[in-house]
Amino acid sequence: MEFAFSAEEERWRREVRAFLDAELPADKEFNHEFTEDEELWEFAREFTRKVGKKGWIGLTWPRAYGGLGRPLPERLIMAEEFARRDAPFVNMIGYGLAAGTLLIGGTEEQKHRFLPDIARFDTFWAEGLTEPGAGSDLASLTTRAVRDGGDWIINGQKTYTTWGHRADVMYLAARTDPDAPRHRGISIFCLDLTLPGVSFSRLDNLGGGRQNHTYLDDVRIPGDMLIGEVGKGWSYIMSAFYAAGGISARHSEIQRMLDAVVAYCETTVRRGRPLIEDPTVRSKLAELAMIVETERLLAYESLGDACNGRTPAFAGALGQVVHKENQPRFAQLVGQIVGPLGQLRTGSRWAPMGGDAEAWYRASYANHAGGTSQVKRMVLATRGLGLPR
Results as ranks from 00 to 15, higher is better:
181 P>C: 11
182 R>F: 07
183 H>M: 14
184 R>E: 15
185 G>M: 06
185 G>F: 03
186 I>W: 01
187 S>N: 10
187 S>A: 07
187 S>G: 10
188 I>R: 01
189 F>G: 13
189 F>A: 14
190 C>M: 10
190 C>N: 10
190 C>S: 15
191 L>A: 10
191 L>W: 03
191 L>M: 09
192 D>H: 03
193 L>T: 12
194 T>R: 14
194 T>P: 00
195 L>E: 06
195 L>F: 02
195 L>V: 07
196 P>Q: 08
197 G>M: 02
197 G>T: 05
197 G>L: 04
198 V>S: 04
199 S>Y: 00
200 F>Y: 13
201 S>L: 07
201 S>K: 10
201 S>V: 02
201 S>E: 15
202 R>M: 04
203 L>F: 09
205 N>A: 06
206 L>K: 05
206 L>C: 00
206 L>N: 06
207 G>H: 01
208 G>R: 02
208 G>V: 08
209 G>M: 03
209 G>W: 02
210 R>C: 12
212 N>I: 00
213 H>K: 01
213 H>L: 13
214 T>I: 02
214 T>Q: 05
215 Y>A: 07
215 Y>Q: 11
215 Y>E: 09
215 Y>I: 10
215 Y>S: 10
216 L>K: 01
217 D>L: 05
218 D>W: 00
218 D>C: 06
222 P>T: 10
223 G>H: 04
224 D>V: 02
224 D>P: 01
224 D>H: 13
225 M>V: 00
226 L>G: 11
228 G>D: 11
229 E>A: 09
229 E>W: 00
230 V>N: 02
231 G>C: 12
231 G>I: 12
233 G>I: 07
233 G>L: 03
233 G>N: 08
234 W>S: 15
234 W>D: 14
235 S>E: 15
236 Y>N: 06
236 Y>S: 07
236 Y>G: 05
237 I>N: 09
238 M>D: 08
239 S>R: 14
239 S>F: 02
239 S>D: 14
240 A>P: 04
240 A>G: 08
241 F>G: 00
244 A>T: 10
244 A>G: 04
245 G>H: 09
245 G>L: 08
246 G>I: 09
247 I>P: 04
247 I>Q: 14
248 S>H: 11
248 S>G: 03
249 A>T: 11
249 A>Y: 08
250 R>M: 15
251 H>I: 03
252 S>L: 08
252 S>P: 01
253 E>Y: 12
253 E>C: 06
253 E>H: 01
254 I>N: 03
254 I>G: 01
254 I>P: 00
256 R>Q: 13
257 M>G: 02
